[in-house]
Design a protein around this nucleic acid. Structure first.
Length: 708
DNA sequence: TTAAGCTTTCTTTTT
DNA sequence: GAAAGCTTAA
């Protein structure tokens, strides 16, 4: 439609290249929308991508990495930082699949696991030995408590903070770059009077960690920052190596982490840092996360390019409308509009259940219906604010024989029996590891805190304390404990044979069988057999490693081995997912149930004391809601149990009440038992023997109970 | 000094 | 309703 042009003037016609000049293997043009493509082809230099929920953020990152590699960027120059290791694995896998090339040389993982990898070769610069141990939260807590008693602080006469609290305090200070006394002042003023002993404990804790050649989670980051800022030549070498840094979930990065990224980029030119995030999904402030890192990125990186992904491919307009209405109540946020692309779907359902049992029953029954309607179980998730809210549901699902996978609660590697066995291996790798030494000793009969501590003190100064212990005269040890100690020494002596250092699976089996842990477990746990099975599974998992040190590092930082989640039911790909909202971040399902939407639970009472806390709770709700693709069901029990199992009336969550009623459909549950419904319709209540047959066609949909 | 038995406390989210 | 904490017996 050209307007009238003077006849003589030549008409300009631009030849459009079909795509970039280069021939790519991947058809970026077709597989991405323009917003995404802009990010994938964004030129070098600092870049921030504000990506709304369901906008194909992961996909975009995957294509970005692929594009870089296709353009000749060597995989080993890529650093991909993610929030969970699951996410890192998933992204690496998808990229490899897309490209059809091997990307194992790319560095990908959480800040913590990448830090551990980068620190090993430089440990000595920082006063550690390369085979340092990594303390998990429990180890850290124990060591802090031990430091407290070290200093002879009277913990009872004037309430002194417990190990867990101190750990959180220290951790928060480290992650936010705040001083301990400032954190006490602002967050724990009731302990202000004991600031000096608290600081003494913190110092002692630090010394003991270094002496044990161990780092806790925060030390990994602190030491990496120290390495980067204190050793310019190392920093330059790393900057040289990592030409492209990509950070996912940047809204949940804390001060310490963002400083690490900044240091990595400090000497680089251009600064190829691409951060991706969504301030509306920032839900980790308790860990020091601050969406400021995302919002302030353009100031810290002048000239940073800003891209937005605002097209939502995931959810129906109904789901998005509810999510939007909810998050709109938050005061401070980055304005962004999510455009739905999908057609209308089912209305969001808000369901009131009489009590927790009925809530569980309802969800279980709906899950079966969904399956019969063609939504496979793995496409269904049940989300909740806190672990314990899944309890009744677990019972109900088990009763009905619905297999589920639970992504919450105690992790596999944090269970007592697993840690007991791993303590032996850790000691093997790091003979200075005081925590593991004591843990292993305390498993022996008649050896408790006291004897373990005495023995440790006797050898702790040696360069190889474990070795010193193995040849220590035991005359001074109480006679009752001697037999056990001897046995332990024999076991550790054998375990120190070089052949075990390269065979973690063998080492595990040795500890369990020859080392006598099987007997210990039988005396210690009521369910010893199940735990011993776990340990065999652990050995199986360890078969994939040929180095104990590497195995341990992965185990502490990588969380559960894939497929090793707690499960009930057999068929691997046929499971409903139960998860906290936090762990569901970044994932999506066709049908999502959010349960326990009750005031004081979700939003969590403690978290919502401050306005910011409440806003964060609302973001948690937003994350939960935006996980759903097709169907979203929000359930709130009308009664619940309070602390001592007393039934209390519960009010629906404000997150439900503050959303216009037009955005959802209300369901009322009725007990269907008495009604003459079609044969298959009634619930498979009771019946002790049954409920274990997932295949039985329980519900014919039709006109069953949920009416609006 | 350890282990067993009774009392108290507390439940948010995670690398 | 469970796990950690404290008390008491062995």
């Amino acid at each position: 439609m050209t307007s009238e042009a003077p006849p003589s003037a030549p008409r300009r016609y631009v030849l459009k290249r079909s795509g970039p000049a280069r021939a790519y293997r991947i058809d970026y043009q077709r597989e991405l929308n323009p917003e995404q493509r802009a990010v994938v082809f964004a030129p070098d230099g600092p870049t921030v991508v504000v990506a709304g929920a369901g906008s194909g953020k992961t996909r975009t990152l995957v294509y970005r990495v692929s594009r870089l590699v296709e353009d000749g960027v060597a995989p080993e120059t890529l650093l991909l930082l993610t929030f969970t290791n699951r996410a890192a694995r998933e992204m690496a896998r998808r990229t490899e699949q897309l490209l059809g090339t091997d990307l194992s040389r790319m560095t990908a993982g959480t800040f913590h696991s990448v830090a551990a990898r980068l620190l090993r070769p430089h440990a000595e610069l920082l006063g550690y030995r390369p085979r340092f141990s990594i303390l998990d939260a429990e180890d850290a807590k124990d060591l802090i408590e031990s430091a407290t008693s070290d200093l002879g602080i009277p913990v009872t006469e004037r309430r002194f903070p417990k190990g867990d609290l101190l750990r959180e305090l220290v951790s928060f200070a480290a992650n936010t770059g705040t001083r301990v006394d400032e954190v006490v002042r602002s967050d724990y003023p009731h302990f202000l009077a004991q600031l000096d002993p608290i600081k003494a404990v913190v110092r002692r804790y630090l010394e003991r960690k270094v002496a044990a050649n161990a780092m806790d989670y925060d030390d990994l980051l602190l030491n990496l920052r120290r390495l980067l800022s204190g050793f310019p030549e190392v920093r330059k070498a790393l900057a040289q190596r990592f030409r492209h840094v990509l950070v996912d979930e940047y809204q949940d990065v804390n001060r310490l982490q963002s400083e690490i990224v900044d240091l990595l980029a400090a000497d680089a030119e251009p600064k190829n840092v691409m951060v991706v995030g969504d301030d509306a999904q920032s839900i980790y402030s308790f860990r020091g996360a601050d969406a400021e890192a995302l919002l302030g990125f353009p100031e810290r990186y002048p000239g940073a390019a800003i891209y937005r992904l605002e097209t939502n491919y995931r959810s129906t307009p109904q789901i998005l409308a509810l999510a939007d209405a909810s998050i709109a109540r938050n005061a401070r946020r980055y304005e962004k509009t999510l455009h739905p692309t999908r057609g209308d779907g089912a209305p969001v359902a808000v369901v009131g259940a009489r009590d927790l049992a009925q809530q569980a029953e309802f969800v279980a029954q709906r899950i079966l219906e969904l399956r019969d309607e063609g939504t496979p179980l793995p496409e269904v998730a049940v989300l909740y604010r806190a672990h314990f809210q899944s309890l009744e549901l677990q019972i109900e699902l088990t009763r009905r024989g619905i297999p589920y996978e639970i992504r919450s609660g105690v992790r596999f590697f944090e269970q007592a029996h697993v840690k007991d066995v791993l303590a032996h291996l850790r000691l093997l790798v790091n003979p200075k590891d005081e925590m593991s030494f004591k843990r292993a000793l305390k498993l022996l009969p008649k050896v408790g805190e006291r004897i373990a501590a005495t023995l440790w003190d006797a050898v702790s100064e040696a360069p190889d304390p474990l070795g010193a212990f193995l040849s220590l005269p035991l005359a001074k040890a109480p006679a009752s404990a001697r037999a056990g100690l001897e046995r332990f020494r024999d076991a550790m002596t054998s375990l120190r044979r070089p052949s075990y250092a390269t065979a973690p699976a063998e080492a595990i089996r040795f500890v369990v069988e020859d080392g006598g842990y099987a007997d210990v477990a039988r005396g210690k746990f009521p369910n010893a057999n199940a735990r011993l099975d776990d340990l065999e599974a652990l050995a199986q998992f360890a078969l994939a490693y040929d180095d104990v040190a590497r195995f341990l590092e992965e185990v502490t930082l990588l969380g559960d081995p894939a497929g090793e989640d707690q499960v009930a039911g057999e068929k691997e790909d046929e499971r409903v997912v139960l998860s906290t909202v936090h762990q569901a971040k970044g994932l999506e399902w066709k049908a999502v149930f959010v349960i326990g939407l009750v005031e004081d639970r979700f939003p969590n009472l403690r978290a919502s004391r401050t306005a910011e806390g409440l806003d964060e709770e609302r973001r948690v709700f937003y994350v939960a809601v935006t996980r759903a693709k097709d169907e979203l069901t929000l359930v709130h029990p009308l009664s619940s149990y309070d602390r001592y199992g007393l039934v209390v009336v519960t009010e629906a969550s404000r997150f439900l009440r503050e959303v216009p009623e037009t955005l959802y459909e209300r369901w009322v549950l009725e007990e269907g038992a008495g009604e003459p419904l079609p044969a298959g319709t009634e619930r498979p209540r009771l019946g002790p023997g049954e409920g274990a047959a997932p295949a039985d066609p329980t519900a014919q949909p039709d006109d069953d109970e949920p009416v609006n």
